[in-house]
Design a protein around this nucleic acid. Structure first.
Length: 577
RNA sequence: GCGCUCGUAGCUCAGCUGGAUAGAGCAACGGACUUCUAAUCCGUAGGUCCCGUGUUCGAAUCACGGCGAGCGUGCCA
């Protein structure tokens, strides 16, 4: 596949710069930036290179721009560049170039113009990671959906990606669960639907502990028994983990999310003591106030923060210990060279410490903390499971599907029942995912049903409707797209759409440069808008000859790109709605 | 106290490594369906980009200082 338009313009522009009076100022390996023009009136692409270099050369930017344009060899790629404003150079693609690109993209149905990365990595991605014995609530939705989307994008770009659900299956919550299991468990309720019953037990004991604090000691004793290998408690624990996993899997199935591994905290139990001993021996960790800690005296920020504790005074381990063991395992057993952690921003300090500790240990691995903002309750405070007033993730998904069904049923009362439900599932789940992925991941927001489940405006149904419209054409025509030898762009709406389609290849690689699926979401929204406008302006089936062939091709290609881009967000498509 | 993140239209949010007149959606108002799906399109209205200073030809964007919100901060995860 040919390079993207910026990648084609850049070397020509560089050659012009090297032939200009500022050639001496260009650093080795310099490549001028070429970006899509903000406003179509300026052209298709623009560069600010003249302004940047004029500054260094102490020249007039517009004069330098004129010199660059003079030396610019378009080689039939663009029209003569134009100079505008303070010194922008604007490029407009030749029509034939865009037409040829459209044909190329049609022939490239697998990749749609998107190249694989030159340096594929082996990446373990850690996301979702719910605690067992507690159902997922809305707070878990971000990491789960963002992590899944990043996995899909990385995979498509040619990385080897291994997803690992590092579930919390060994935490202190088991003290209360074990006590509750033995004292307040409703066996029948457990059999009927284990996850809510486990939550009830957890909440009940949590409440009891509030009322009579001495109960906490009893719970702690249960935890110690578990951790020292007590047979009865181990059995209960295993049962708990088993039923919880089944409950979690149901949610993941609804979300169409899978993991390569489920290596929870408990998996690393026998690796913790040797790790601590080793770090003590290597003087990376030291004893302090009875606990084993890692200090960071040379780190400019962490030096003033408390140490990372890897073993408690009572001999117990903490999540810093488990996470260090996990890094080690992922490097040695998975052969990973890169680890991604999609985790809430409150854990920033923990990961700063963890990564620094890993560096001190000498691990040769790239570590990437990909944080996301918090979902807050109406009181602007973070959701906390133990309070019990959180909204469960499953309820959100069900409500979303129900709302979508209502509209599907209104608009298409004649569709078979099963089809209506299938469409409602696609739209409902897609709406939740899109509302998350279309937002910058670090922004905090207050949970609001109507906001998260909106179906109007910049939402999943708008995008799905654009896809449905591409399919409606071929359904009406009575046959699938049969290919074309010629593309003739005449209307502005066609040109704009063709350019937008070509830019898919520019957008996808950008997602991983700063881990922002919302850049892709924005692109899909713009593509859908562009297509909807094309739809209004350009009749397809009533057209003839090359015009019709061109428009059919644009519909087909738009459908392919929409479907593919949505799949990178983990959103499924529907043929009708 | 120290540290992290955020602050943009009435509301919810975009705005990529500094670029041209700061953009969408919702809500409000006005238009367009005997037409390939109107879950659409077109138009009107809406702004002290939290405040201040600095760097720059140019700042919503970068730096510093405030203010506000949320979060973290030695034995939970």
């Amino acid at each position: 596949m040919a390079a993207t338009f910026p990648a084609l313009i850049q070397p020509r522009l560089l050659a012009a710069l090297q032939a200009s009076s500022v050639a001496d100022l260009l650093p080795d390996g310099f490549m001028p930036s070429v970006d899509p023009a903000q406003n179509p009136q300026f052209g298709d692409y623009q560069t600010n290179a003249a302004m940047v270099l004029a500054k260094q050369a102490k020249k007039n930017p517009r004069e330098l721009a004129a010199e660059i344009v003079e030396k610019f060899e378009s080689d039939n790629l663009t029209e003569t560049p134009e100079i505008a404003g303070p010194g922008f150079i604007n490029f407009r693609l030749k029509k034939e170039v865009l037409e040829q690109r459209t044909l190329d993209l049609l022939a490239d149905s697998d990749r749609l113009g998107v190249d694989k990365v030159a340096d594929p990595k082996k990446i373990v991605i850690d996301f979702s990671a719910p605690n067992v014995a507690k159902p997922m609530h809305v707070g878990h939705i971000r990491g789960t959906i963002i992590g899944d989307s990043l996995s899909r994008v990385a995979d498509f770009l040619g990385h080897e990606i291994i997803s690992d659900n590092h579930i919390g299956d060994w935490g202190t919550q088991f003290g209360m669960i074990l006590y509750g299991w033995k004292n307040v468990l409703d066996e029948k309720a457990l059999e009927a639907d284990p996850v809510p019953e486990l939550l009830r037990v957890y909440k009940a004991i949590n409440q009891l502990c509030e009322d009579e604090p001495e109960l906490r000691e009893t719970c702690k004793a249960e935890l110690v028994k578990l951790q020292s290998g007590d047979e009865e408690n181990l059995k209960i624990w295993e049962k708990c983990v088993e039923v919880s996993k089944i409950g979690l899997q149901k949610i993941y199935d609804k979300l169409d999310i899978t993991f390569d591994h489920w290596l929870g905290e408990s998996f690393y139990n026998d690796k913790l003591q040797p790790l601590v001993d080793d770090l003590l021996e290597r003087k990376i960790a030291t004893e302090s106030d009875g606990a084993v800690c890692i200090f960071f005296p040379d780190h400019k920020k962490l030096a003033d923060q408390p140490p990372a504790i890897i073993q408690k005074g009572d001999g117990g381990f903490l999540y810093a210990t488990t996470d260090l063991a996990t890094i080690d395992y992922r490097i040695k057993e998975f052969g990973a060279d890169t680890l991604w952690y999609v985790v809430g921003i409150p854990q920033q300090l923990h990961f700063d410490q963890l990564f620094e500790a890993s560096r001190m240990i000498g691990n040769d691995v790239e570590l990437q903390f990909i944080p996301f903002g918090s979902i807050l309750g109406k009181d602007r405070k973070m959701f906390k499971t133990r309070d019990g007033d959180t909204v469960q993730l499953d309820d959100v998904l069900n409500e979303s599907v129900a709302r979508a069904y209502k509209i599907v049923d209104e608009k298409n009362p004649d569709f078979p029942e099963e089809e209506k439900q299938e469409i409602a599932r696609t739209i409902g789940i897609g709406a939740v995912k899109y509302s998350e992925l279309s937002q910058f991941r670090l922004t905090d927001y207050i949970f609001d049903w109507d906001n998260m489940l909106a179906l109007k405006g910049n939402t999943a149904p708008y995008l799905l409707n654009a896809y449905v419209r591409t399919r409606a054409i071929f359904r009406k025509m009575g046959s699938d797209f049969e290919g074309t030898d010629v593309i003739t762009l005449t209307e502005a709406a066609e040109t704009t759409l063709a350019l937008k389609l070509a830019q898919y290849a520019e957008i996808v690689p950008m997602i991983l440069s700063d881990f922002r699926p919302n850049t892709l979401a924005t692109y899909i929204y713009e593509l859908a808008t562009t297509y909807h406008k094309f739809w209004e302006a350009c009749p397809v089936l009533k057209a003839d000859g090359d015009v019709k062939a061109t428009r059919l091709a644009l519909c087909e290609l738009t459908g392919r790109v929409l479907k593919h881009a949505l799949s990178l967000l983990g959103i499924q498509t529907t043929e009708k709605m």
